[in-house]
């Protein structure tokens, strides 16, 4: 699928449905990992929504990304339960191991580190989610293992 086809198809799918802007943006991000300017512009045209509105929405909601994140997005939960169980140490360990700060992506574009609001697995606190995989009850000692697991995943998916 050509780069721009995604936005056109998403626009066609949603334009006749009501209350669909956020759903359409989710779909673009699902496919591309973020919402590029060109796609937003095509979506604006295709759905008849001003670009200004699209960016008002994109920048309001934390979920949407305007730039390409790393291939593995490490989300350290900062909910209350995780806070009480020392998520700050987990986050610090990820920063140390990955050599990047919160909100940053490493030079290779492999890992993106972020803190996220409660992922709703409070019983397993502290929790970290990498892409769609949830890791519960983790300690600082587990961090390296998680990173290695994903390094392996990433190199395998390359081959």
């Amino acid at each position: 699928m050509a780069e721009t086809d995604v936005a056109t198809q998403v626009a066609n799918k949603w334009k006749r449905k009501r209350g669909s802007l956020i759903m359409a943006l989710h779909e673009i991000q699902e496919i591309k990992g973020f919402v590029p300017w060109a796609d937003a512009a095509i979506l604006a045209e295709g759905m008849g929504v001003p670009l200004a509105r699209i960016y008002e929405v994109l920048t309001f909601y934390n979920f949407f990304k305007l730039e390409a994140p790393g291939k593995a997005v490490v989300s350290v939960c900062t909910g209350t339960a995780c806070y009480l169980k020392g998520n700050d140490k987990i986050l610090a360990e990820f920063q140390k191991q990955l050599g990047i700060k919160e909100g940053e992506t490493d030079a290779e574009g492999n890992f993106h580190l972020q803190s996220v609001r409660c992922v709703g697995c409070c019983g397993l606190a502290p929790v970290t989610v990498v892409n769609n995989k949830t890791y519960g009850r983790i300690t600082t000692e587990n961090v390296k293992g998680i990173i290695d697991e994903w390094k392996k995943n990433l190199s395998e998916s390359k081959e």
Binding site: I22, V57, Y61, F64
Partner: peptide
Amino acid sequence: IEVRLGAGAF
């Protein structure tokens, strides 16, 4: 019934 998603805004 229709389903709509939030996008990270408490």
